[in-house]
Design a binder for these strands. Structure first.
Length: 476
RNA sequence: GGCGACGUAGCCAAGCGGUAAGGCAGAAGUCUGCAAAACUUCUAUGCACCAGUUCAAAUCUGGUCGUCGCCUCCA
């Protein structure tokens, strides 16, 4: 029985899908005005882990991740000078059109998704290709009487939505009291958010623009997720995931729009990824303290170690991202793969062994952990115990052919979640007869040095052999 | 100022009222150097601090201190 911490109710809840056996998941994807960094991908890996575990449990999963390719202002306020369009700023900086910028960073994003072995979503809808759906939603909201028009745009009147603030734990009053935003005189409340922006004031020359019943302009940034999730997944979603920074105002506003427009509950389970931190400070584009996947790989770390680090750290605790974490992940991956190699090479015998019950209990423990809000620490602990038990069986020489297959099948099943295991048996390197002669001579020579306790020379030969692809493991 | 999360060994981390899982690092050993793998054993009388509730508290309550996040674009 899968339990998930729902950020809306702030409780762990037993998961029940809207439709028996099927699950719909919507993930807030990237805004493609610059490279996504590993912190961004940690949120997508959280979704990947969820998708993979649900599939492991036998659900049919439909996963949608949007691509935000409309340039959005940093601020809805006309009064603020800090508001700039990120897409257009990038376009000027890189001397490309906004469309080129969007496609360029989208391509990079897709490449990194693949590198990190994140499962392909059902679709990656682009905001710019769903303007009509967004306009339709504004029309629906208009019918419900919750919007109003000003000289610069169309806004959602949040006083018309009782639960506004529920997700982020704010009441409207508290929001007003703690407000740090500047006041736009035309808006009824500073927290009313834009559904449509007109080409006036500093948006006069906005490059991406579309016609609408409210004049030429561009959509508000919360709208795309409401419109696209409805189109591809329906009015009530099982899961909606994203980074914790999206809770307010983005997801809060999505709820207001979708529930008002559709008259139905928008999302059953909200999941938010805690930020990863660097020296106790969150990694973010605006702080500038970020690494891209490529940056980390250029330092010599494998993509798998990045993947493993993020899926094994719990998604609701902030991960302090550093090289130690990556090194440890790599070691753990190697440990699993060494184990798999040992199993692949084991010589089976006709015998009874306890493999079946070892696998059964490991599987139970693993699922017990994962079922508890994806508690990977508990899940992993069961696997370390599992490997130890199986190795003992192997050392005692009691492994049947069936057991060997069962262990490998179990590891493969687990790999549908981890996706970092390697099942290719590492064959001894083949050498020609001449090479074999050379190697034998070197080994003889080294043994002689060892007998003489001439360790320096012996080590030199070992290094030479390793370079040739010969592994030396000294035993008594 | 408002809202929220967290503080368990050198590091990462589980635990959700019954007496501290697991991983990394470290130590000793199986083993005549060193390195690698595996295995065995060891490594927190204590869970930020102070009170309280209880037969029993890392776990519940109140307070204190500290760290971080959100409240403006960010996963």
């Amino acid at each position: 029985m899968l339990q998930i911490y729902n950020s809306l109710t702030k409780k762990k809840e037993v998961f029940k899908s809207v439709e028996e056996g099927k699950v719909s998941i919507y993930t807030c994807g990237p805004t493609v005005y610059s490279s996504s960094h590993v912190g961004n991908f940690s949120a997508f890996l959280m979704a990947d882990l969820l998708v993979r575990y649900l599939k492991y449990k036998g659900f049919e999963v439909k996963w949608i991740m949007n691509i935000t390719d409309v340039g959005h202002l940093t601020d809805d306020n006309e009064l603020s000078d800090s508001g700039e369009d990120k897409m257009e700023a990038a376009s000027k900086k890189e001397n490309k059109t906004v469309w080129e910028i969007a496609r360029h960073y989208e391509d990079l994003f897709m490449k990194d998704l693949k590198t990190l072995k994140i499962l392909p979503a059902f679709k990656y809808p682009r905001a710019t290709e769903h303007i009509e759906e967004m306009i339709d939603m504004i029309k629906l909201l208009d019918e419900k009487g919750v919007i109003y028009e000003t000289s610069d745009g169309v806004y959602f009147d949040i006083s018309k939505f009782k639960d506004y603030g529920k997700l982020s734990g704010n009441s409207l009053e508290a929001l007003q009291a703690g407000a740090r935003v500047e006041v736009n005189e035309d808006k009824k409340s500073p927290f009313d958010f834009a559904l449509w922006k007109k080409l006036t004031g500093k948006n006069e020359d906005h490059i991406m623009k579309w016609d609408s019943p409210w004049g030429t302009g561009f959509p508000g940034w919360h709208l795309e997720c409401s419109a696209m999730s409805k189109k591809y997944l329906g009015e009530t979603l099982d899961f909606h995931t994203g980074g914790e920074d999206n809770k307010f105002p983005h997801h809060e506003s999505e709820i207001a729009q979708s529930e008002t427009a559709n008259g139905k509950k928008f999302v059953n389970y909200w999941m938010h990824k805690s930020h990863i931190v660097l020296n106790d400070e969150k990694m973010s584009k605006s702080l500038g303290n970020f690494f891209t996947v490529q940056d980390v790989m250029n330092k010599g770390f494998s993509a798998d170690s990045i993947r493993f680090t993020f899926i094994t750290a719990h998604y609701r605790s902030k991960l302090n991202f550093n090289e130690d974490q990556l090194n440890e992940s790599q070691k753990t991956i190697d440990k699993f793969n060494d184990f798999i190699q040992t199993v692949l090479k084991v010589n089976t015998s006709d015998c009874e062994d306890e493999t079946a019950s070892i696998i059964k209990s490991a599987k139970q423990q693993f699922e017990k952990g994962m079922d508890d809000d994806l508690n990977m620490s508990v899940a992993l602990a069961s696997l370390f115990g599992f490997m130890k038990s199986i190795r003992k069986n192997i050392e005692s020489g009691n492994v049947s052919k069936e057991s060997k297959t069962a262990v490998l099948d179990f590891m493969k099943e687990l790999n549908s979640i981890f996706e970092v295991f390697d099942f290719d048996e590492k064959k001894e390197k083949e050498f020609s007869k001449d090479e074999q002669d050379v190697i034998n001579k070197l080994i003889e020579k080294r043994n002689k040095f060892r007998a003489e306790k001439n360790w320096a020379e012996a080590d030199k030969i070992r290094e030479e052999l390793i370079r040739m692809g010969v592994n030396i493991a000294d035993k008594k």
